[in-house]
Structure formats: C-alpha cells, structure tokens
Nucleic acid binder design. Structure first.
Length: 224
DNA sequence: GTGTGATCATCT
DNA sequence: AGATGATCACAC
C-alpha cells in the first residue's frame, strides 16, 4: 500500500494533485492506492468521497470544519453523466434545528463551507470502476451565486426559527434546500413549534440542487 | 446521538 | 426524468 498522501500545503499543490487524478478511472486509482472497490454504492454511499479525500490528503474527518482546514477549502465530489450534468444533489451540512442555529448568514455553516470548494466531477453512469475523475474546479461563489444561497438560507432558517415545523420540506429554496439527514425516518429531534411547545421532527441537512451545481460546471467548463 | 462522506428508492 | 424523502457506512 502506498504511503499516505501528505497534507497539501497550498491551493496550488492541492489543485495540482487533483489535476493529476483527472482522466483516470475510479477503478485505476482505487487499486493503485489499495482501496477495495465496491460493486455498488448501495451499501457504501460515501465511498467515492472518502476515496478522493484520502487521495488528496484531506484532514477533517467527521469534524464540522473544511476538509483542508488550513487552506479553508471544502472538497465535494459531484457525480455527473457523460455530459457533465450532475446526477444528484450535493450535501452541504447539517442544519441545527434548535437555538444554536446561526443568527446570520455571515456566521452560518453553509456560508463557511461554500466559501471555497474544490469540486471534483465523477463522470459516468456505468459501473463504478469505469467512472472517470473529471477536471477539478476550485470555486468560490460569485456575487450572484452568494446572493441566491443567502436568500435561500434566510428563507429556510426563518421557517425553523419561527417553529413552522409543518412547513419543513424540500420544496423551498432555489439552490439550497432542506432534506432529512439521518440514519432513518425514525430519528427525531425536539424543537419548539410556533407556540413554543416542544414537538419532534426529523433532523435536516442543507443540500444544493443539481440545477445550481450544473450551473457552476457550465459556467466554468462551458458544457451544454 | 451527531457529525462526516453521499446515493438510494419512490412518487409525481 | 426530476425531485423529494429515506437510507447506508463509519468515526467519535
């Protein structure tokens, strides 16, 4: 098994490393690094993300901080079809359902995580080992993009802060949405409803809609 | 139980 | 087909 990948010391080094992986299949790089390759992701949904984090020398583990903490960079794999169209939404972070919800967009987990993101497209719809690692995109939101994210975040957190539990669903938000994020639907947390009474609801997380991530790829790679 | 990494399964 | 709600594995 190859030696562990060292922590990248600069953006340039990280980007160079990611670029070196581009064009290779998941199967090839997994075998090279001694990773077992699952036939399906049915029972290993986070496998691609963990593989790429390892190959790039990420450090955060499961702490709520950027993958490359000293660089302030979050890494996200982005599964796409052959044309670079995202196949899934992108998980951003959990959403605090209690009083610890950030009081402003400026202080929010979403803004901090999205401030600098290394997107790594994973291209293809066939067997996992045949899918290609795409060209990396080191991205920060444009003014327009941040405005959309901020508006969505404020809309969503407002629902929670108001205690409108009945109104929590994935239909809100142009780019950012709230969806269940837990082991299963039986996992519940206590919150306060509109009248301040304790009620239970599912834990949620923030996700980026595919339309938004598709826009990023089109803007930077000029894909149709 | 809560965080990380996400995709799966189903309905419209 | 696209979106929503549900679920899987692992670390701590």
């Amino acid at each position: 098994m190859p030696a562990p990948v060292p922590i990248p010391q600069s953006e340039a080094e990280l980007l160079q490393r990611a670029t070196a992986l581009a064009g290779h299949t998941l199967g090839a790089v997994a075998i090279h690094y001694g990773f077992g390759l699952p036939h399906t992701q049915r029972r290993q949904k986070g496998w691609v993300g963990v593989l790429l984090e390892t190959l790039l020398g990420a450090t955060a583990g499961n702490r709520p901080v950027p993958d490359f903490e000293h660089l302030g960079i979050e890494m996200k794999t982005l599964p796409t079809d052959e044309h670079g169209k995202p196949r899934e939404s992108t998980y951003v972070s959990t959403c605090p359902m209690n009083g610890t919800l950030a009081s402003s967009w400026e202080d929010s987990r979403v803004r901090h995580k999205m401030a600098r993101v290394l997107w790594i497209p994973i291209v293809g719809t066939g067997p996992l080992h045949e899918r290609l690692i795409g060209s990396p995109l080191l991205w920060s939101p444009s003014e327009a993009e941040e405005k959309v994210l901020r508006n969505d975040w404020e809309t969503l957190t407002d629902i929670i802060v108001r205690g409108e539990v009945w109104n929590l669903n994935a239909r809100h938000g142009e780019a950012l949405q709230l969806r269940p994020k837990a082991a299963n639907a039986k996992q519940l947390v206590w919150v306060h409803d509109e009248e301040g009474n304790p009620v239970q609801t599912q834990p949620r997380g923030f996700y980026l809609r595919p339309r938004f991530t598709h826009g990023l790829l089109k803007k930077h790679f000029g894909l149709s």
